[in-house]
């Protein structure tokens, strides 16, 4: 199984580290099918754009509230560049507006901060389901 590339976009260092640690922990606990991921980190929208273009990640965890501009704008650009990319939006404000805008713009899921183990697991399980579905659609 190919190692998926995972881009973490959040301006808070410990949030990115927390996500990474917990995703790794899910693989160690064998709660996911994937055993490893290739992680990339960005603290600003500009860095995220550069890393996305360079690495074309399979999965992105994208905070809506970034210092340079909105994660929602970035979401639209990423989906245009790579429609198959699984994007989980993250926000401290789980308003219906944020959630429905994210869905409309192509996000696969939405994680409301604060992070919990269950929220991260639910997002990763959905990602595996969708990647598996995409792979089975490609195979005749």
């Amino acid at each position: 199984m190919k190692e998926p590339k995972l881009l973490l976009v959040d301006d808070v260092d410990y949030s990115r580290q927390l996500l990474r640690n917990n995703i790794m922990s899910l693989t160690e606990m064998k709660l996911l099918k994937y055993r490893t991921f290739n992680f990339f980190n960005a603290g600003t929208a500009a860095d995220a754009k550069a890393l996305f273009t360079l690495h074309q990640p399979d999965i992105v965890f994208l905070d809506i509230e970034l210092p340079d501009y909105s994660g929602l704008e970035l979401l639209a650009q990423f989906k245009q560049q790579k429609p198959s990319c699984f994007i989980a939006m993250i926000s401290g404000a789980s308003t219906l507006e944020n959630v429905t805008n994210s869905i409309k713009m192509g996000a696969a899921t939405f994680i409301a901060k604060p992070f919990t183990g269950d929220k991260i697991l639910a997002a990763m399980r959905l990602m595996e389901k969708q990647i598996y579905l995409q792979a089975s659609q490609r195979t005749p």
Binding site: V12, D13, Y14, Q17, N22, T116, I120
Partner: peptide, 20 residues
């Protein structure tokens, strides 16, 4: 009943949080 999955937090991460 769902069994909550605890968040994994180590000392390095906790220190980063408090610095922030």
């Amino acid at each position: 009943t769902q069994q909550p999955l605890p968040l994994q937090l180590n000392s390095q991460l906790t220190n980063l949080f408090y610095q922030n």
